[in-house]
Design a protein around this nucleic acid. Structure first.
Lengths: 259, 259
DNA sequence: GCAAAATCAGAACAGTTGTTTGAATCGTTT
DNA sequence: AAACGATTCAAACAACTGTTCTGATTTTGC
């Protein structure tokens, strides 16, 4: 698999091994390192994934990482953007389609659910596309957005700032009654929750169980619709909830009085 | 400040320095280490907080941690349980009060909001109690529950398993229509979201801004009620949302069709 | 004030991390 | 077949981690 390079390039430095192009022998070290890095990152995160663990898993020499990628940070930057660029591309493409003037599929009453679907449908699709994502793609996604390392956080924040802003704007239009601060906090909540849930093993098992129960209830429904049918109302409910409603405030004051 | 020990204990090994008890001189090394550990943990988490950083910040010798606490893990176990034990004690006490047969403050229509208030009111109170918590208590809480280190995760999971189970049961009674799996997932969501939000600096600024705006809107309201008035409906909305509603499914299918 | 216990301090330990070196090897081209 | 650049390899590097060992110092109880 060629990554940042085209085959037969005129630049010697960017040429892949002929043997690998012809599909002979084992994959070149560069590829094996990238695969090993992704596998280990999914389970351990950035900090806890050492170069020695990577090179051992890949069956290559320790110095290979620095030789091929320059540094640990450059290696991870490639692995992360590799995956997340295609995800974000799909996301904005789908958002464009939803916002297109042709108005196909527009549903103003459930706009929030649709925006949530736009955010997560591409990820669900990639998880079943073994070429561009694969079964562990959702865990990868969760790890990436939940990783505590400043390097990973800065990379994601800077590289995808524009796309994130577009979604914040879209949600703001769909929820005109919510002031900007409150919306920002709730979206923050939502993304944090999704990320750590995707990253955690037992939470994903729960989601899988939910999908399975949806399958038995209806006859062969679309799997993505089943997942989003659970996820979207849940998240939309939190985004749409009205704050400072008198009866709720009264119930809360009753608890405060207990203390 | 005496931690795991009473003054004048009969056990020589558990005796604090007389000078500190009389308030003379600077705090004993043990105390300074505990304070430094808490400060650094709040900003960096368990893994990234080295013993050298702790002892430098505390102005004590490197070997002091192992001498006084045995190991890094034992030190952090003390720091964590120190704070979280009192929090969880307050929590179950408040839950007992809400569930008491006397029925004071009972509100079946807003039971979910009340349970959320029970979960977070003690934390808000401790954040304003400089003795047992302090201004950075919420950040501490967020860090603790969001920390990726297996040591911290296991410690919290094992030590507070019983209390957590009680809250899950209480939520299950308040939401009888939600099956156990779905409830478990949603609570997982909720806690993950709260934790990472409390831990993140900018998200807490948002919350502070919300409190401030609530102050201007009403006349000197109780600060805790203001926070919970925003938080509880938001979280309750996500817990109560109904999945698989036909009109929402239709809106989602429209998005799937766009792809 | 004395002896014993508790505390502190410096240095070093064994382990890990990411990175670099220089020589050996491989693959391709001429 | 020879030459050349690209790649692999073992080894070592410097910086860091938690921990432990010495001896000196201070504090405490009698």
């Amino acid at each position: 698999m060629a990554f940042d390079l085209q085959l037969g390039s005129a630049f010697p430095a960017l040429r892949v091994r002929e043997r690998e192009v012809r599909g002979e022998g084992r994959p070149a070290t560069k590829t094996r390192i990238l695969i090993a890095t992704e596998n280990l990152f999914v389970n351990l995160g950035y900090d806890a994934t050492s170069l020695r663990a990577i090179t051992t898993e890949a069956g290559v020499n320790l110095a290979a990482v620095n030789y091929h990628f320059g540094s640990k940070e450059e290696l991870f930057a490639l692995v992360l953007t590799q995956r997340l660029d295609v995800l974000n591309l799909e996301r904005v493409r789908l958002l464009d389609a939803l916002e297109s003037p042709s108005g196909k599929g527009f549903d103003s009453a459930h706009r929030v659910e649709q925006l949530i679907a736009v955010m997560f449908l591409p990820a669900l699709r990639l998880a079943r596309d073994s070429e561009r994502g694969g079964p562990s793609f959702l865990r990868f996604l969760g790890r990436a957005y939940a990783d505590p390392s400043p390097f990973v956080r800065n990379l994601l924040a800077e590289r995808y700032a524009a796309q994130n802003a577009r979604f914040v704007q879209a949600f703001a239009r769909a929820l005109p009654d919510l002031d900007a601060q409150d919306l920002s906090m709730r979206l923050h909540f939502m993304l944090d929750a999704i990320s750590s849930t995707l990253a955690s093993e037992d939470a994903r098992k729960l989601m899988a169980a939910l999908i399975a129960s949806a399958h038995t209830a209806k006859e062969r429904p679309d799997e993505d619709v089943a997942v989003l049918g659970h996820l979207a109302p849940f998240l939309a409910g939190s985004l749409r909830a009205r704050a400072d409603q008198p009866p709720q405030l009264k119930a809360i004051r009753a608890v405060v009085a207990l203390l």
